[in-house]
Design a protein around this nucleic acid. Structure first.
Lengths: 330, 330
DNA sequence: CTGAAAGCGCTTACAG
DNA sequence: CTGAAAGCGCTTACAG
């Protein structure tokens, strides 16, 4: 274990009785190597407990084989399926995915951080904070964002379609007085616009609240409370995401409204929370695993030299009906 | 932006009119540098948009300035405060914390992965999977675990004390028939033993269920259902963690029990879920931010050469009373 | 496939 | 503080 020195590629070459170059070829999965030699090298690696030095490999090859994933908040597990989708596509290609929280432009600027570490590519699943010029590596932005990254490809759920599914579901259940709880950020703003558009299109009156609130449980609570005080006759509440719906649920209980008896409640994301038996929230599944996979495939193409114009890929969402919605009593 | 070549330390030295060695000293925060020269170098770095190469620095210095945090599951945000505590202590010292999921011994072995990347130290906040020999870098293990890592320091909440606080709270409210919902893993096992010990000590009959279940919402639901079917007269249910308590809450509702009217419910972790208005769960705050800080301080000491015997540090927990517990009606 | 060689961009003594 | 030098452990052509 604690040998004097970690074995290097030289030790492996000597042990296997081959050249140093050959070891490097084996490590990089080249097919120019005969099976016999390949096995000899692998056996030597095994015997010596050799681990390649990432630092040396990165320095020599001028690439790190690391891809950065920038997220808003580790506490909001929305990003986990994106991560797993990226891993499914990129790990077999030898890439590792590193995750960082983007905590504003202050201290923890994750984008800057990743560029210093020299990731080979970047997936931004958070508000970028401000417009960015070209970052020097392939970038995929995921979701509706307030700011742009020059030259980035975009992969996201078809949120407009998700909104239509959710609102159409409520409409089909007889609801006509449908309120919306919104919050700050590009994602909530996009959903708010979609909500207003859909309502107007269907000759219904849009009623929303909470544009200044955070898009968390507290924001959902405050927004729903405001919304229902101003519009006591609402029969359905649509929150901009599942966590906000949890807050809205508390506001509804506080106001003495049964769900779904008096008011139907809908979220967005199909989070674990929505899936829990206790909340059993009707929501929109955004297929973020697929978003991650497509983001990974897009980056792979870029890393292989594809320099076409930025692309936008849209993934179809799906409505998941649970017991938080029911027929309108009105 | 897209200059022909990234600037190196040579370019900075030329731009600042100093030697290459001096630039390196400034980058590493040495105090052997005069303020004037330091400023000159910083200005040059700014002008050139210079970013040090982590790969080159790691290779030359034989350390990466990276610390790995091994977690069980990105979906269970239990670890987030540990991460933030580590960051608070280690980032000012120039370290970056990388997080990986430990998905069994198969594919995603995070411990192996980190050793390949050559982290300078490791924090294991997950089940290690099997006993490990010395890993070659300083290691802190957090929490009650089934397996050991040779030579590792241990930092964790005083879970025994946490259990006493929660059970004492229920006892003080008049509860005598208190059941426990448990699950797999070292953490749940430790809590189960503590529960049984406390109950016996107080001449009460321990009743538990779910030892084979996952420690998630589903496990909490199944365990609580089994527990209450076997012991319909329980007046309080103590789940091994908050997420399991969420599942237990659904089981209670399904069985027609009001919380806290018929049955009081307690969790463990003081997660966001417990804090939500809708669940408002009485639980144990484990002060995991502090656990992260102490883990960081411990690693720092080890990296500075402290080679004393492995230490065990214990952080005092705190009971958080919310509306899921009340006086026993019995 | 081999083998000698250059080079990636830093850090680390070391003599001055 | 400077400056020349060695070296970290790889990758990458390149001539054979």
């Amino acid at each position: 274990m604690n040998s004097a020195r970690r074995p290097t590629i030289y030790d492996v070459a000597r042990e296997a009785g081959v050249s140093k170059s050959l070891v490097s070829l084996v490590l990089n999965g080249s097919d120019l190597v005969s099976p016999a030699k390949r096995e000899a090298v692998k056996a030597a690696i095994e015997r010596l407990g050799y681990r390649p030095s990432r630092a040396a490999a990165s320095l020599a090859a001028k690439r790190t084989r690391a891809v950065g994933l920038v997220i808003d908040d580790f506490r909001n597990p929305w990003y986990v399926d994106v991560l797993h989708g990226l891993q499914r596509v990129l790990e077999p290609e030898g890439f590792h995915i590193a995750v960082r929280e983007h905590r504003g432009d202050a201290g923890g600027n994750a984008i800057e951080g990743f560029l210093s570490t020299q990731v080979d590519a970047l997936v931004i699943a958070a508000e970028p904070g401000h417009d960015h010029g070209p970052l020097g590596v392939p970038v995929v932005v995921s979701g509706w964002r307030l700011h742009e990254v020059a030259g980035a490809d975009i992969v996201s759920t078809d949120e407009l379609q998700g909104m239509r599914l959710a609102l159409g579901h409520l409409f089909g259940l007889g609801h006509r007085r449908i309120g919306h709880v919104t919050g700050t950020g590009g994602s909530a703003l996009g959903r708010l616009k979609a909500y207003r558009g859909w309502m107007t299109e269907h000759r219904l009156t849009p009623e929303d609240a909470g544009a200044e609130n955070d898009t968390n449980e507290e924001g959902g609570y405050l927004g729903a409370r405001e919304l229902l005080r101003a519009n006591p006759d609402l029969t359905a509440v649509f929150a901009a995401n599942d966590t906000m719906a949890l807050g809205a649920r508390a506001a509804l209980r506080e106001l003495g409204r049964e769900v779904p008896g008096d008011v139907s409640l809908v979220g967005f994301d199909n989070s674990q929370l929505a899936q829990s038996r206790f909340l059993a929230l009707t929501t929109v599944e955004a297929h973020t695993f697929r978003v991650g996979e497509v983001a990974g495939e897009t980056l792979l193409a870029r890393l292989r030299g594809d320099d076409g114009a930025p692309r936008r890929t849209v993934i179809a969402p799906e409505l998941v009906v649970r017991s938080s919605t029911g027929r309108s009593g009105a």
